[in-house]
Each structure stands twice: as C-alpha cells, then as structure tokens.
C-alpha cells in the first residue's frame, strides 16, 4: 500500500488536523468526562454510607417501637433507645394528606390554564406566580403556616395537618407545572372531535382529556410526593415533633425527616445510628416513588 492516503494527499490549501488540535480535543473530552464522574461521587458515597451505617440499625425493634426509649448505660443490655415507628407513621399520614390537598388543587389549576385560560393575561399571571412559588424556600412555607395556622391557634397549637398544609404549598407548583406540560401534549384533534360530537367542554375534559393524560399526571404527582416526603424545614414549626406514636393528624406528630434531624444533633452513637437507619428507609421510600413515577411515564400514551 504505497498509494497516498486521504489524510496526506487530500488537502491543498490547509494543513491536516494538527496533533495539537487532536490533543486539545482529547484533553477537553477527558476533562468533561472527569467532571461528570465527580458529579456522581457524592451519590456513590451517600448510598455507600447509607447502606453501611443504615442496614446495621435495622434490627429487631427498629420498625416496631417508637423513639421514646432511653440511652443505655454501659453494661446494660435489655434497654433500647427505640425505633422509628411513629416517624414512619407520621410521614405517611402527613404526606398523604398533603397529596390529597395538593394534587387535585394543582391539577385543577393546570386544567384551567390549558383548557380555559390559555394565553389570557390572567392565565399568564397565574403561571408566573406558580413559577414564583417554585422558587420559594421551603422554610418560608413553614414560617407562613406557623403564622397563619399555629400562632393564631386555629385547632390548637402544632398539629400534623398543619405540616401537611405546608408540604401541600410546596407540592402545589410542582403539580401544576408538570400537569400543564402533560395536558398540553394531549392532541387537539382529540378535543375537537369530541367537541364536534356536541359534548360540552367540561365533559370533553373529564372523559377525554384527563383519561388520555392520566399516566403523565400520575408521574408528575408522584414526583411531587417524593419531593415532599423528604422535606424537613416546612415541618419544623408546624407538625413539630413528638416521639410518641400518634394516629390523629390533629396533634403534634413525628416524621422521618424530623427524627433524622433531631437524632443528628444528639451526639450519641446509638442515636446517630438510628438516624442512619431512618435515612436509609426514607431514601428507599423516595426511590420507590421515583421508580413508580418513571414506570407510569413509560406506560404513557403521550410523549
């Protein structure tokens, strides 16, 4: 093979790609790849420590007792600091109520924006303020609910349901934005052909638009639920925290994030270990919600 190759012969005016350029390209790519890996380092480390420290905490009574026990003195073997049962129950109840408030409310706003408001001035104003809400720090929602519901003494002092309201405010913009995107994906021909049959607009929305968008709406809502489940700040001065097992949302309630937050600040090995165990459980809960959300998305008929 003595024929000149394209690289050598092909260029008349300009030199071929110089080794310097090739090197620069390689360095830049490697650098970008390395930064990408660095982005994943915290994830790997957090997951590693969660498993390492957290699984150890998941012993016998971790899920069946409340964090009301006392610290063991050296030599004592029968005592226990207790598990996180009340925290799990509290998180489930508070988040469930928050979802019941935020998901219908948020979906209704999205339906209004897509089906009725469209590009009107009022609709765009609402859109803008929904965006504003997305940016509000979660602790500010906690403050607001404290002022309006706790300090004013409506229905007693701290209560689980007040925590739900704070979480619902946090979820609301997420639900509105994601639902709006999904509803916009519903093809207009579907609406028009149903309207052409003489169905009133509300009926078209109820029996054509919403069912078509269902799995997408579920995805958005589940992601909002996952986000709310991990929030601590809005619960600090709304649901407060009690260690006892409480069933009713009318009283102060424990929750997983608050349990972790309080345990971290208690410098005792066993209690910190409980925080790791609770954190592992909380992260798993959120991961499962994310996973279900993604599966729902995959089944979606839209997009």
């Amino acid at each position: 093979m003595s024929a000149p190759t394209f690289n050598e012969a092909g260029l008349r005016g300009l030199p071929p790609v110089s080794p310097g350029r090739v090197r620069k390209d390689r360095i830049a790519r490697t650098f970008i790849g390395a930064l990408t890996l660095i982005a994943l380092v915290p994830l790997v480390l957090v997951v590693f420590y969660l498993l390492k420290q957290g699984l150890g905490a998941w012993n016998g009574d971790f899920f069946t007792t409340d964090p009301t026990g006392r610290t063991c003195f050296p030599g004592q073997t029968t005592c226990s600091i207790g598990g996180v049962r009340s925290a799990i129950l509290g998180t489930l109840e508070i988040v469930a109520l928050a979802s019941v408030i935020a998901i219908p409310f948020g979906t209704a706003v999205a339906v209004y924006l897509v089906e009725y408001g469209k590009q009107s001035k009022f609709a765009n104003t609402v859109r803008y303020f929904v965006d504003v809400m997305t940016g509000v720090p979660s602790v500010a929602f906690g403050l607001f609910v404290y002022i309006v519901l706790v300090a004013s003494g409506i229905g007693g002092s701290y209560a689980g349901w007040k925590g739900s309201v704070a979480l619902a405010l946090l979820m609301l913009p997420i639900v509105v934005r994601s639902s709006e995107v999904v509803l916009n994906l519903v093809p207009n021909q579907l609406r028009e052909s149903a309207l052409a049959l003489g169905a009133p607009r509300w009926k078209v929305i109820w029996s054509v638009v919403l069912p078509t968008a269902r799995s997408g709406l579920i995805t958005g809502s589940l992601l909002a639920v996952a986000r709310a489940a991990g929030e601590t700040a809005p619960l600090l001065f709304t649901a407060f925290a009690t260690n006892e097992l409480v069933f009713g949302l009318g009283q102060p309630m424990n929750s997983l994030p608050l349990q972790i937050f309080n345990d971290v600040r208690t410098p005792q090995d066993a209690i910190v270990q409980r925080a790791w165990g609770a954190a592992l459980f909380l992260v798993l809960l959120i991961l499962i919600l994310n996973l279900v959300a993604r599966l729902a998305q995959r089944r979606s008929r839209l997009a």
Binding site: A39, L40, P42, L43, L45, V46, Y49, L50, A226, A229, G230, E231, T232, A233, P257, I260, F261, V264, A275, W276, A279, L282, V283, I286, L287, N290
Partner: peptide, 13 residues
C-alpha cells in the same frame, strides 16, 4: 438521582 436524596440526609452524611 442526586436530587432524590433529601436535604436532611445530605446533612447527616
């Protein structure tokens, strides 16, 4: 997934 880890868990870690 980095966004799925709650703030309090990052704090703990």
């Amino acid at each position: 997934l980095l966004a799925a880890v709650p703030s309090v868990v990052y704090g703990l870690w």
